[in-house]
């Protein structure tokens, strides 16, 4: 099992300083645990290898990823404004990886989350988004993964390899940082494919937080009316039962909950 992990130069959410992206560190943990499970051994590197890829001018804070359990990191040297897609496609295409793991979106660049999809398209791999757990599949050459859905639900998928999978923040937390692991990890620098980005028609300015939409009442309404608009939702034509016996009340409640589909038998 050969696993590649795409690492991006992120920024810390609070301080804004360069830092590895947390979701990609979680991907390292998922990859290590998958390999360990497949080998049935304690040693994580026996049944396969994990390689990190980063396309950028400098590995910088990504050396920390080595401390979080990544054995090997390959930095593809390109300019700061270059498109990382051709470099990554060339590097991943040259070696055969069974599984490519990536984060959801970068931090500090375009932040659109498009790169994994474009890469999957270039490499001809299927892509699955938002994995939060990985395990060996029922057949050889498959992997079973859990996809995180809104409201805490999950979708269990069986996926044929090779494939590209993006990781969701609901995945288990990254492995703790170990200084010795960082010293032990290998960092290799290769020449990337220079690909200057074409100037787009996008105008950039300083970010201004916009107010989120809230339930609106009429313009110039009083505070009471605004509160009413915020608290009152569409009421479903309320049914009122006054002073029933507790058993009747329980029966009515359960019937209502079953009718609206909340309570399943």
């Amino acid at each position: 099992m050969r696993i590649a992990i795409l690492l991006s130069a992120g920024r810390h959410a609070v301080s804004g300083r360069p830092a590895p992206v947390s979701v990609e560190l979680q991907a390292i943990r998922l990859a290590r645990e998958l390999i360990r499970q497949m080998a049935g051994e304690v040693d994580g590197n026996a049944a396969g290898d994990i390689t990190g890829f980063h396309a950028g001018p400098d590995a910088g804070p990504l050396k920390d990823a080595l401390g979080h359990g990544l054995p090997r990191l390959i930095q593809l040297s390109i300019g700061a404004q270059d498109d990382p897609l051709p470099s990554l496609a060339a590097a991943l295409g040259a070696e055969r990886f069974d599984l490519v793991l990536a984060g959801r979106s970068g931090q500090g660049g375009e932040d659109a989350g498009l790169l994994p999809y474009a890469l999957a398209r270039t490499l001809g791999l299927p892509i699955v988004a938002d994995a939060c757990a990985l395990a060996a599949g029922p057949q050889h050459g498959t992997v079973s993964l859990e996809q995180a859905l809104p409201r805490g639900a999950r979708r269990r998928l069986t996926l044929r390899l090779p494939a590209l999978v993006t990781v969701h923040p609901a995945a288990p937390a990254p492995l703790p940082f170990a200084f010795a692991a960082m010293r032990r990890g290998m960092l290799e620098t290769r020449e990337g494919v220079p690909a200057p980005r074409a100037a787009g028609e996008v105008e950039e300015r300083a970010y201004r937080a916009r107010p989120k939409l809230i339930a609106k009442s009429a313009a110039g309404a009083s505070a009471t009316e605004r509160l009413k608009a915020a608290t009152e939702a569409a009421s479903s034509g309320g049914r009122l039962i006054v002073d029933p016996a507790p058993e009747d009340a329980a029966r009515a409640i359960l019937a209502h909950l079953r009718q609206i589909g909340v309570l399943r038998d």
């Binding site: 009152e232 009421s235 006054v242 409640i253």
Partner: peptide, 28 residues
């Protein structure tokens, strides 16, 4: 609770605001 689609309330007070908001209100 404003964004909840269905509200069920059990309360002793007939005139409580929650009873008014609820789709099924039980005064008990």
């Amino acid at each position: 609770v404003a964004r909840c689609e269905h509200v069920v309330a059990v309360n002793t007070d007939l005139h409580a605001a929650m009873i008014e908001r609820a789709g099924l209100a039980i005064v008990a």
